[in-house]
Computed example of a mutant assay.
Amino acid sequence: MKKLVFLFALLITTIASAQKNSLLVGGNVGFSSEKIGDSKLSDFELSPLVGYQFSEKWTAGLQGSIMNAKVTGLENNEKYKVGGFVRYSVSLSELFSFYGDFGVGYQKTSLNNAKGIYAGFEPGVYMDIKNGFCLNFSIGGINYDNLNGKNDLRQNHIGFDFGKTLNIGISKNFVL
């Protein structure tokens, strides 16, 4: 089951190729599991997004995320994110294009009712297959987030994870 969820997550990532005056609908599905001794951590994340391509190179839209993390013997932690993103795309050939996504928004966790902001940049490459369907590839990015809870100290995190992650996805572009 874990392998099936992992393969599905690889298939459903990012969004499609840029066409002026079109709507992009896409997102990510992710799952991870880690076991250390008797303790087990698993999380599931769903991250939809919708964007409008107002030129051949620029797309802007809304993104969100719902994550549920479970740790053996501890309370579940749910994390919600909502924000906006901007994408800049450059065509490398008829088949391949390079893109950079920048996103920023608000986040909240159920654990300790922590709230904060996030921002991130993720470059990638997509391959236009046919009729607005694309395969998308990325290998990480740069991200920042902070959380401030009732009983916890303020948490700030800066991540640089190029090469630590691999996302492969399929997506669809709807021409308006």
Rank of each mutant, 00 (worst) to 15 (best):
residue 18 A to M: 12
residue 90 V to Y: 13
residue 50 V to A: 10
residue 73 G to D: 15
residue 113 N to Y: 00
residue 171 S to D: 11
residue 20 K to Y: 12
residue 68 N to A: 04
residue 154 R to E: 13
residue 88 Y to E: 12
residue 1 M to K: 07
residue 121 F to I: 14
residue 44 F to V: 08
residue 163 G to I: 06
residue 67 M to Y: 01
residue 118 Y to I: 02
residue 154 R to S: 09
residue 56 E to S: 15
residue 160 F to D: 10
residue 164 K to D: 12
residue 8 F to I: 15
residue 172 K to A: 01
residue 27 G to N: 10
residue 74 L to R: 13
residue 59 T to E: 14
residue 171 S to M: 09
residue 173 N to I: 03
residue 98 F to Q: 15
residue 72 T to N: 13
residue 166 L to E: 08
residue 8 F to P: 00
residue 120 G to M: 00
residue 71 V to T: 15
residue 150 K to A: 05
residue 106 Y to V: 09
residue 111 L to R: 06
residue 153 L to F: 01
residue 114 A to M: 02
residue 137 F to N: 10
residue 102 F to Y: 10
residue 116 G to M: 03
residue 32 S to Y: 09
residue 163 G to W: 04
residue 91 S to W: 04
residue 105 G to R: 09
residue 42 S to E: 14
residue 111 L to Y: 09
residue 30 G to K: 00
residue 25 V to Y: 04
residue 73 G to L: 13
residue 25 V to N: 03
residue 150 K to S: 06
residue 88 Y to R: 14
residue 161 D to M: 01
residue 107 Q to G: 06
residue 101 D to Q: 13
residue 153 L to G: 04
residue 11 L to V: 03
residue 17 S to W: 02
residue 82 V to D: 02
residue 47 S to I: 06
residue 131 N to R: 14
residue 70 K to L: 02
residue 122 E to H: 10
residue 76 N to Y: 08
residue 37 G to T: 02
residue 16 A to Q: 05
residue 25 V to M: 07
residue 109 T to W: 06
residue 127 M to C: 12
residue 41 L to D: 09
residue 8 F to K: 04
residue 112 N to K: 00
residue 94 E to M: 00
residue 65 S to M: 11
residue 105 G to Q: 08
residue 52 Y to T: 08
residue 102 F to S: 09
residue 115 K to P: 03
residue 101 D to Y: 03
residue 109 T to D: 04
residue 128 D to C: 00
residue 159 G to I: 01
residue 70 K to E: 08
residue 96 F to G: 11
residue 156 N to F: 08
residue 111 L to M: 07
residue 46 L to S: 05
residue 79 K to H: 12
residue 148 N to C: 02
residue 149 G to M: 05
residue 59 T to G: 12
residue 23 L to G: 06
residue 52 Y to H: 08
residue 161 D to P: 04
residue 170 I to W: 04
residue 138 S to A: 14
residue 35 K to W: 04
residue 98 F to P: 11
residue 14 T to Y: 12
residue 100 G to V: 15
residue 114 A to K: 02
residue 141 G to T: 11
residue 135 L to D: 05
residue 110 S to A: 11
residue 35 K to D: 08
residue 103 G to S: 13
residue 169 G to M: 09
residue 97 S to N: 13
residue 72 T to C: 10
residue 176 L to M: 12
residue 158 I to K: 11
residue 166 L to C: 04
residue 103 G to M: 11
residue 163 G to Q: 11
residue 53 Q to G: 03
residue 2 K to P: 00
residue 169 G to Q: 11
residue 167 N to W: 07
residue 110 S to H: 06
residue 86 V to Y: 14
residue 91 S to M: 09
residue 169 G to N: 08
residue 62 L to T: 13
residue 133 F to D: 01
residue 152 D to L: 01
residue 148 N to P: 01
residue 39 S to Q: 14
residue 154 R to L: 08
residue 171 S to I: 10
residue 115 K to E: 03
residue 50 V to I: 15
residue 44 F to H: 10
residue 36 I to A: 09
residue 87 R to N: 15
residue 162 F to I: 12
residue 16 A to C: 06
residue 155 Q to R: 03
residue 102 F to K: 01
residue 67 M to D: 08
residue 78 E to F: 03
residue 169 G to S: 07
residue 84 G to K: 09
residue 47 S to V: 11
residue 175 V to D: 04
residue 170 I to P: 05
residue 28 N to A: 14
residue 107 Q to D: 04
residue 47 S to F: 11
residue 113 N to I: 00
residue 28 N to I: 05
residue 54 F to N: 07
